[in-house]
């Protein structure tokens, strides 16, 4: 078990180093933070002063070493936009993002899994076709289009809900629904196909032939075996809790981590981008680790192999 955990942690550390290095190179080679943050009309001497203040005139390799050394010592740097500590800047946005992504995840689970199971249990029926039609629609409509459609309907036409901002729970409804619908559609499709595969297995037929009630067959034999691919997708969804709302936060003017990431990338605000990437990588790695452990719990064969 320790070896299993150690290998995965080592793999996670290598992933994070690669992510950080790649982001540094791409961001620094594709834009000058001084020019972008100071604006197109800034006098040349102001641009020069900004570059000097932030060490942007040094050779790139030296900037990279300085930056990497700071990360290793736990210093993620300061935002070039206003000089604030990057960790503090990101940390204060996390609650806003989680206020959207956690309820959206619950909608995804609460809608997507039952819909997928229902569709599989009624294969080729009207229910199956209706559920899959909705799932395909939810899956294929981009979130920014769905978000704007919901705004047009519920904010502009009906006036029931606000179109954007972060003033209270009513402002969170449309972004949560936007994210929830798309994710539920994905989960429904995966759950359905996993269930269909399991329902065709010999052990399901055996259990039915032995006279086990169908409900018990589904709950006791089909669902646990169909859970593995579904848990993988849920793992990805949990992993993207922190930065999975980039588009929705922009459409609904929700000041979370996603919007901070967009602004930071546009401004080449390296410290903030890196801080978010580290956070995302850590969340994703943790989620993957939990998923790996869940595999063992769900499938005794995997547990025995690991042991």
């Amino acid at each position: 078990m320790l070896r299993f955990l150690g290998f995965r942690l080592l793999r996670a550390a290598v992933t994070i180093v690669l992510v950080v290095s790649f982001a540094f190179v791409v961001l620094r080679l594709s834009g000058d933070p001084a020019q972008i943050i100071m604006g197109a009309d800034a006098p040349p001497e102001a641009i020069v002063a900004f570059r000097r203040a932030w060490g942007l005139e040094e050779p790139l390799w030296r900037q990279y070493l300085r930056y990497f050394g700071a990360i290793v010592s736990g210093d993620l740097g300061r935002s070039m936009r206003d000089g604030r500590d990057a960790i503090a800047l990101v940390a204060e946005r996390i609650p806003a993002t989680l206020a959207l992504t956690i309820p959206a995840l619950l909608i995804k689970l609460g809608l997507g899994i039952p819909a997928g199971i229902t569709a599989a249990l009624h294969r080729n029926s009207l229910i199956d076709r209706a559920v899959m039609m909705l799932a395909v629609a939810g899956f294929t409509v981009p979130s920014f289009v769905l978000g704007l459609l919901l705004v047009l309907l519920f904010a502009v036409q009906l006036g029931w809900l606000p179109s954007g901002g972060q003033e209270g729970w009513r402002h969170a409804v449309l972004p949560i629904v936007t994210m929830g619908i798309g994710g539920a559609a994905v989960l429904a499709r995966f759950t359905r196909s996993a269930m269909l595969e399991v329902l065709g297995q010999p052990y399901i037929r055996t259990a039915s032939a032995k006279g086990v009630p169908w409900r018990a067959v589904v709950w006791g034999h089909a669902l646990p075996n169909a859970a593995i691919p579904t848990v993988t997708i849920i793992g990805f969804m949990v992993g993207s809790l922190i930065a999975g709302a980039v588009v929705v936060e922009s459409v609904f003017s929700w000041p979370g981590v996603g919007r901070l990431l967009v602004v930071a990338v546009a401004n080449r605000d390296l410290a903030v981008v890196q801080c978010i990437l580290l956070l995302v990588a850590a969340t994703m790695v943790t989620a993957n680790l939990v998923v790996d452990l869940l595999y063992g719990a769900l499938d005794p064969r995997l547990r025995q192999r690991t042991a």
Binding site: V156, P162, S253
Partner: peptide
């Protein structure tokens, strides 16, 4: 979103 918010009265 700005236009939608204007027309919805927000």
């Amino acid at each position: 979103a700005r236009i939608a918010g204007l027309l919805s009265g927000e």
